[in-house]
Structures are given as structure tokens and as C-alpha cells.
């Protein structure tokens, strides 16, 4: 039996990535760190799609198309989020999420 040919291996790796992302999202003290954790969560979802695509899906193209879309949305999200972080940093001079609690400076 090969571990690379069983579905559960990939699902467990995806669970690990997801849990790491949640852990980092709660524990990080900066906006960029939280963004990195969000990327980990997105990537775990993509890995899950690819695993089910290989082992159970009727049409093998669907999961790959979906993963490509996840990548595109992740790229757009990072571009927007980084420019928002920069705008917040310019205005408040800090990047601790706890310190940024006023809407108007």
C-alpha cells in the first residue's frame, strides 16, 4: 500500500494546513501575519479539492478548474489586503490589530 495513493493522507495534510492557519490567525499580532495564515487556509481548501478530484470526482477537470479559481481569488485578495494594510499603516503608524479600532482618526 502506498500512502500517496490514498485519499486520507491528503485530507490529513489539508487538515494540518487548515489548523495551522486558524492557529496563526488567532495568535499573530500583525495584519501581514494574519494574511499569511489566511493564505494557509485557502491552500488547504485547494488541496482538498485536488484530492477529491483525483479519487472520487466523476470529471477530473472540475477540481483543477476550481483550484485555479481559488488561486486567482487568493492573488486578488492578497493585492487588495496588502494595499489596505499599507493604507492603515500610513494612517495609524502601527499594525497591531488591537490598536486599530477607530474608524476616523
Amino acid at each position: 500500500m502506498f500512502f500517496s495513493q490514498t485519499l486520507e493522507t491528503y485530507l490529513l495534510i489539508a487538515v494540518f494546513l487548515f489548523v495551522t492557519g486558524i492557529y496563526g490567525m488567532i495568535q499573530h499580532r500583525s495584519f501581514v501575519g494574519m494574511l499569511i495564515s489566511a493564505e494557509l487556509v485557502l491552500n488547504s481548501a485547494a488541496l482538498n479539492f485536488m484530492a477529491f478530484n483525483k479519487f472520487t470526482a466523476p470529471d477530473p477537470a472540475v477540481g483543477q478548474v476550481f483550484t485555479l479559481f481559488i488561486m486567482g481569488i487568493a492573488a486578488a485578495e492578497v493585492a487588495i489586503a496588502i494595499s489596505m494594510v499599507l493604507a492603515v499603516y500610513r494612517r495609524y503608524r502601527c499594525d497591531d490589530p488591537d490598536d486599530v479600532h477607530e474608524m476616523k482618526h
Binding site: G72, A75, A76, A79, I80, S83, L86, R90
Partner: peptide
């Protein structure tokens, strides 16, 4: 979506 993200990032990053 990518076009909107590009335009939004440029506007947010102005200044």
C-alpha cells in the same frame, strides 16, 4: 475580479 483588484489596489495605495 482581478481587474477590480488591480484598480482597487492602485486607489488604496495612492499617496
Amino acid at each position: 475580479i482581478l481587474l477590480a483588484a488591480i484598480v482597487g489596489a492602485i486607489i488604496l495605495g495612492q499617496g
